[in-house]
Structures are given as C-alpha cells and as structure tokens.
Simulated scan of single mutants.
Amino acid sequence: MAEHTDSTASTRTLVLAGATSAAGLATARALIAANARVIATGRSVERLQELADAGAQIEIADATSVEDMTALASRIGPVDAVVPLVGGWRGGGGLAGQSDEDFAALLPALHAVRATSRAFDDALRASDAGRFAIVSSTSVARPLAGGANYAAVKAASEAWTRAVAQGYAKAARESGERLRAAAVVFRAKALDPEALAARIVALWAEDAAELNDRVFDLG
C-alpha cells in the first residue's frame, strides 16, 4: 500500500455518512477511482446497493445518530475524512410558509453534522491529515424569506463546522504540534454532484493550516 501523503486521496479512508444520494454515489466513485477506501452509510441496504456495486464498503447506520456513528467509529478503525451528506430542501410561501413541519424535516442535516463530527473527532485528530467537510448553501450568505427554514439550518451547520475547525486549531496549539486536521464548508447554489466529488477528492491538496475553517463556493 502506498504511503500517505498530504496531497492525495490515495489509500485514505473516508466515511460518507448518509450517502444514498446522487452526490454520495458520485463522490464514492471519484474517491474509489483515486484509490481511496470509502465507507458509505445509510439506513437501507437496498439504497446502499449501488454504492456497494461501485466498490464502497457499506454500513447500515443512521448518520443523524451519535450512538450509531460512535459505534461505527469504533468498528472501522482509523479514518482520514468524514463527510455528512444528509440533505434535502423544503420551502417556499414566503415567511408565512415556513412551517414547523418543514423545519423539522430539514433538521436531520444539522443532526448529521453534529453526530458525525462528535463521533469521529478523536479519529480525525489522530489522522496525519484528517478532514471534516460539509455541504452548505449559498443561501446562508443571502437568505430569502421563502427559504428561511433551509438557510437557518444550513447556517447552523456552518457554525457547528467552524466550531469543529476551532477545536482542531486549539488542540494543535495546546499540544505544541502542527495542525493536521481541517474542517471545511462547501457552498453550492444548486449542487453539482461531480463538482462536489472533485473537491472532496482534492481535500489533501492543501495543508491543514491553509484549509481549516475555510468556505469554498462550488458555483
């Protein structure tokens, strides 16, 4: 097996949590083509089958559950990157149309960011180049009344991820070691699965000190 370097995804182990989407499949295929080990999670073996066919290791686990994610972390051993991919959109109708039901339906995306970052915190800090990345939206920078629920959940997810980034930096500073782990945000207006896949494959193209706490626009 090739030696790990900070500039390649080759031989890295990545967890794609809640990966049963077009973005999850595109990312898994791109990473596998780059010689990475991909662990894809979902709640349905049937929906995970296409990922298994692409070469991913599949695990039945709820990405929004810290208990499930912690159990997964203990089973799979060393991990170099975690990307929660739970998403979805509901909105419209102006501010009056921002129902509690829609808000509740969007919250799993935030729950997945919280659960995965907490469960894999030790593993990502232990990696020689750990990466935590989330998918957000350009609506955070310019929220609209008809998408207030969605923008609020994405903004909260970004805030949590930036706190993860600060935690990585603080731990490195206090230990007197170089920063090895980085947390980043990918923002998209309309998510292009292939564009996201390319950016995740390139997560090791920059040193953690340059990458940590950055927001990237996927267009």
Rank of each mutant, 00 (worst) to 15 (best):
G130F: 01
L203D: 02
S117P: 10
L106S: 11
A190Y: 02
A19H: 07
T5V: 10
D213Q: 05
A141T: 12
A52W: 01
R90A: 12
D121F: 02
I32N: 11
D128S: 13
K170Y: 06
G91R: 10
E158N: 14
D217V: 02
G91W: 09
I60K: 12
L179P: 10
D121P: 00
A126V: 06
A172G: 06
R12Q: 04
R214C: 04
A171N: 07
A183V: 01
A52I: 02
T5K: 05
A156K: 06
G42T: 04
D128C: 08
A208E: 09
L25G: 00
D217Y: 04
T138A: 15
K189I: 03
A112I: 13
R180V: 05
V215S: 10
V83R: 04
E59V: 15
A190W: 02
A96F: 03
V82T: 04
R178H: 08
T64K: 02
A165S: 09
G18S: 04
A159W: 03
A208Y: 11
G94F: 12
G92C: 12
F132V: 06
P108I: 10
A28I: 08
G42N: 05
A17K: 07
S65G: 08
Y150S: 02
A54K: 07
V66M: 13
K154L: 02
R214V: 11
A71H: 04
A115S: 15
A129G: 14
A198K: 13
R118F: 09
K170S: 13
A198T: 09
R178K: 15
R90G: 05
V83A: 06
R90K: 12
M1D: 09
Y150E: 04
D128N: 11
W160Y: 10
R180I: 01
A152T: 14
W204L: 04
I134E: 08
A34N: 11
D192V: 05
V140C: 11
Y150Q: 03
A109I: 02
L218A: 12
T20I: 01
L16S: 05
E3R: 12
A202R: 15
A123K: 15
V185E: 02
A63N: 04
S175Q: 14
A105E: 11
R29G: 01
G88N: 11
A71T: 05
